[in-house]
């Protein structure tokens, strides 16, 4: 569709998933899920536990290959065979607890796999000073001022600081698509607000953000575009302002009660057909 270079970047979604299906053995986990995210836009992927969010994240970050469906980055079809593949396409995934190396220093974990060096072979040295300064600076740019020492261990940071470190790392290494897996789930109100501000900052830089969460309030604060997953299928897809908080919460809650789910869903879908969307 948008294979021509002439297409403006706003027209071509930076990341587009079309009819992604996934199953493990006989268990169908995802059914024909289609999503798209544009540059400078936050797509909130909502869903309760077991809705298939994690599987979808793993497909977007190259851990799993979908059974069917296509993935396009900037209009070009791609196949991710490993997390390294996705990184090469500018996709970075940040997990719930941010820094994944709790016992490494901030500077060292920031540069894992891309260590800065100084000196001459064979005595090339890991440039700890540069690594520490860069990591601390990048965190400071995201509003984390309490961390001044890059030699501190990542495990000693608060949840919000770890998220900032991980997001800062992704942005520093040139990620254009940021997948955030429940970044606010383990955080207090204040820290969550800070992380949301960081997400807004990334969006302002033109990064496409996929924000996975089950906290509707957080999603509504930063999201431009919303998709609700229920039992592996996309149950709703709407833009900012098209649904109220209550409606979304009810939608998601529908995923819990299996029996009521279908009916409830249909009821909501029907309720909105032909109606002017309520501005919440």
């Amino acid at each position: 569709m948008a294979t021509t270079q002439a297409a403006p970047s706003t027209a071509t979604p930076l990341l587009r998933l079309t009819d992604i299906s996934m199953s493990f053995g006989s268990t169908q986990v995802l059914t024909d899920v289609s999503l798209e995210v544009n540059r400078g836009e936050v797509l909130c992927l909502l869903g309760d536990n077991g809705a298939g969010k994690s599987t979808l994240i793993k497909i977007m970050s190259g851990v799993y290959q979908p059974k069917s469906g296509t993935i396009e980055v900037d209009g070009k079809p791609v196949v991710f065979r490993s997390p390294r593949d996705t990184a090469a396409h500018g996709i970075a995934t940040v997990h719930q607890f941010g820094g994944t190396f709790p016992l490494m220093t901030i500077g060292r974990s920031f540069f894992v796999g891309a260590e800065p060096e100084k000196g001459f072979w064979p005595l090339r040295r890991f440039d700890r000073r540069y690594a520490n300064e860069t990591a601390v600076r990048e965190m400071r740019q995201l509003g984390i001022t309490r961390v001044t020492d890059g030699d501190r261990l990542v495990g000693g940071l608060s949840g919000g600081e770890r998220q900032a470190l991980a997001i800062g790392r992704a942005v520093y290494f040139g990620a254009s698509i940021l997948i955030l897996d429940e970044p606010t789930a383990a955080l207090g109100v204040k820290e969550a607000a800070h992380v949301l501000r960081i997400v807004m900052g990334a969006r302002a830089k033109g990064i496409a953000v996929v924000f996975i969460t089950h906290q509707v309030t957080h999603a509504l604060t930063v999201g431009d575009h919303f998709a609700v997953l229920i039992r592996g299928a996309k149950a709703a897809d709407f833009r900012k302002g098209e649904k109220t908080r209550e409606e979304i919460t009810d939608l998601m809650a529908g995923g819990e009660a299996m029996a009521e789910l279908e009916a409830e869903l249909e009821a909501y879908e029907n309720a909105h057909e032909g109606h002017v969307p309520q501005i919440g």
Binding site: A87, F101, R108, V112, F126
Partner: peptide, 21 residues
């Protein structure tokens, strides 16, 4: 040297280390 960072990263989280290249 930088090799040491790889060892610590692998022991810290194998999947993340692999994802980091």
């Amino acid at each position: 040297a930088k090799f040491g960072n790889w060892i610590f990263a692998i022991g810290g989280d194998l999947e993340s280390a692999r994802a980091a290249g």
